[in-house]
Nucleic acid binder design. Sequence first.
DNA 1: CGGGGGGTTGATATTTTTCAAGTGTAGTGG
DNA 2: CCACTACACTTGAAAAATATCAACCCCCCG
Lengths: 246, 246
Amino acid sequence: MTPQAIKVACSNCNLRELCMPMDLSVGDLGRLDELVATRRKIRRGAPLFSNGERFTALYAIRTGFFKTCIATEDGRDQVTGFQMAGEIIGLDGIVGDHHTCDAVALEDAEVCVLPFDRIEELSREVPALQSHVHKIMSREIVREHGVMLLLGSMRAEERLATFLLNLVQRLHARGFSQSELVLRMTREEIGSYLGLKLETVSRAFSKFAEEGLVEVKQRHVRILDTDALRAVVAPHEAGAALKRCA
Amino acid sequence: MTPQAIKVACSNCNLRELCMPMDLSVGDLGRLDELVATRRKIRRGAPLFSNGERFTALYAIRTGFFKTCIATEDGRDQVTGFQMAGEIIGLDGIVGDHHTCDAVALEDAEVCVLPFDRIEELSREVPALQSHVHKIMSREIVREHGVMLLLGSMRAEERLATFLLNLVQRLHARGFSQSELVLRMTREEIGSYLGLKLETVSRAFSKFAEEGLVEVKQRHVRILDTDALRAVVAPHEAGAALKRCA
DNA sequence: CGGGGGGTTGATATTTTTCAAGTGTAGTGG
DNA sequence: CCACTACACTTGAAAAATATCAACCCCCCG
């Protein structure tokens, strides 16, 4: 393969509306192409970056699916997120110049490499990009607040229902089905993310299947009753609404 | 009180090294004073901002102590953090132009109001400030990863020990004791942050006191054995270290 | 000095984990 | 092509952790 054989360009990337600012003049849009240095392919199971590695760039996922996780010396391990096409990964490395977590591809993947010094340079000149970078980081903070709510106050089935609804919603935003999905991760990885053991995740899946909310065949999941899944998450919703009206 | 009676200035603020970039030329340092529009006092129990409120500014805490929390329609509630002098609050509002959580003063407090459009403007001109803003947001993301680890993989006593060690370490960085602290929040608020019920928090405190790790009198806590507290968090540390050497 | 919110403690209930056994299933090599 | 193996997943029973319910205490403050 010749180096730089394919022209790397955000301006005609079909994922642009997912990872880039929308309201750009044609001129600024062209400048964005300076952002992407190269692309990089990552095989399933391989790390995009690892804890301790020097931080140099953010990554925009073009294809594939990642998990990020942190590990402590005493063997604890926590999946902190799952990322898919159009999402930005690597923000953890900015503060200390080194990555503080591992990003691992859960299927063969390709990312755009966005050198961070170039991001900072360009966002000084293009306010829309600057604002976009801030929003991306803020969005991650808000997402993590949601995970804290999940981990801190939900029971097992509520957590799994929330997780499934979130996944399917993000997939739907990318043109996939609203009701069908293929899990890219194991029960153990789901469990780690949700603060549960893999057996508990499995049992919750079985319970949902029993009740007719979903159909589960290994990693293939079909959501049969979205509203019922939502009701699992917020069982008191109706009551609370009533109370507010009273 | 005359408006603007006191000259608001970062350049001679004793908290500067906590909330501002360190490596500034004298000229740039002066420019930072443009950042702070006003100061604002918040009484204990009053909100600095609330969920749904329009986002206009970040806040640098000068004095006092805050909690941030999110609430859902169905009555769930999660404390997402406790913030003290020198820390920046309000990052959640950037992404959607509205705040997504409540920030409540747990004691009488004063903050510097940093209008966000001014932050963006100035950080386009002062790279050190730009970098600093990025680092502050990244630090918050990394902090929340730590909370996810805590909520997802630690048991009650490990969570409380982690919490105490983190609090006392931050207080020490501000010139307070390494071993003594006064909690500004209730057991219920601690519990909400740690994903536990207040009774569980209380029991964990009692257990620590029984074992001679801490002395607890209501909200006054004295840490008697820091190493033992650390061992509560990472009980396998020693074993793991041995294994690494073997 | 009385009231009330915050805190502690005990007994019981519930949820989740742990341990253990067994069942697919996808990939591999004979 | 089929058997085999490794890994992921499921399920059950018992154990552990935490929540819930309830009673009580203790201050701190007005």
